[in-house]
Nucleic acid binder design. Structure first.
Length: 266
DNA sequence: GGCATTTGACCCAT
DNA sequence: ATGGGTCAAATGCC
């Protein structure tokens, strides 16, 4: 019997869901095109999650058949490269302005990315030199929706503003005014994305019907927590993926009963 | 003048 | 050789 990591359970669930939706889609063929379209969308979303889960389940070396996989997963090693990588997908409800996450960043580069419609911008902490803060972030518009941004935080804030940001009820990268969770009529300001003063805050809440039934959590970008998983609020909205090196056990064990059964049933 | 942004060049991993 | 990440000079803004 092969032991699956929790992402493995989620992955098998995703694939089972894909199968179920495919069968349902087949049944809808030539009957209800609107329902079929909706199922196609759900299928695409589920496949996308499955791919991400598969990547998080297997160590980078197992991706060797795909040279790009290591880079995609943020494991590309470079001299001085930060270890902690946090990816956040955010919606700019202000319509494309610079994403303000409460921390001060200085842009140091912009690059056209192969196959991407929009260039990627590179930011580093303003206090890089004065306080030796090595935190960086990369911001890129998603191809599909110009109001959606993929933000990748690399490294930890060691400057003074990190502590200040920690005291604020917001996640680095998820400034409440500008960010919004949105999915099928469910809109919620990102109060869900709260960070407690100390340690990890797990934003584990049941989601409304129709929203992906994953657990959600938030971790401060500069915390020492080490786990790996993700949460998705649909194809639009906020997705967060944390790539860390240690097991999920602590997180899983402290997950409320509702979600434990939910996850185990996956 | 000081600081931030832009952008071409360079470095490094693959 | 190529693509992605960073550097640093030039430029702009306050």
């Amino acid at each position: 019997m092969v032991e699956l990591c929790s992402e493995g359970h989620a992955l098998t669930s995703e694939l089972a869901q894909v199968l179920a939706m495919a069968r349902e889609l087949e049944a809808h063929m030539d009957q209800d095109s609107a329902a079929a379209r909706e199922l196609c969308r759900a299928l695409a979303s589920s496949v996308d999650r499955s791919i991400r889960l598969a990547r998080s389940c297997f160590p980078p070396e197992l991706h060797a058949t795909n040279p790009a996989a290591g880079r995609d997963a943020g494991f590309k090693k470079r001299k001085g490269m930060a270890k902690v990588r946090t990816q956040v997908r955010v919606t700019s409800v202000k319509g494309g302005g610079a994403l303000d996450d409460g921390l001060s960043w200085r842009k140091y580069g912009q690059k056209d990315i192969l196959g991407a419609k929009y260039p990627r911008s590179y930011f580093r902490c303003t206090h890089r030199h004065t306080q030796s803060c090595n935190a960086t972030k990369q911001v890129q518009r998603t191809d599909g929706d110009p109001l959606l941004f993929d933000v990748v935080y690399l490294g930890e804030h060691t400057c003074g503003q990190a502590a200040a940001a920690k005291r604020e009820p917001q996640l680095a990268g998820a400034e409440p005014v500008q960010l919004q969770l949105e999915h099928a009529g469910w809109e919620q300001q990102s109060s869900l994305l709260a960070v407690e003063n100390e340690g990890i805050h797990q934003g584990v809440e049941p989601m409304p019907a129709g929203v992906d039934s994953y657990f959600s959590f938030v971790s401060p970008a500069n915390s020492d927590c080490q786990f790996s998983s993700g949460f998705s609020a649909g194809s639009a909205g906020v997705e967060m993926y944390y790539d860390y090196s240690s097991p999920l056990e602590d997180f899983f064990l402290s997950t409320p009963e509702f979600f434990q059964s939910e996850i185990q049933n996956l």
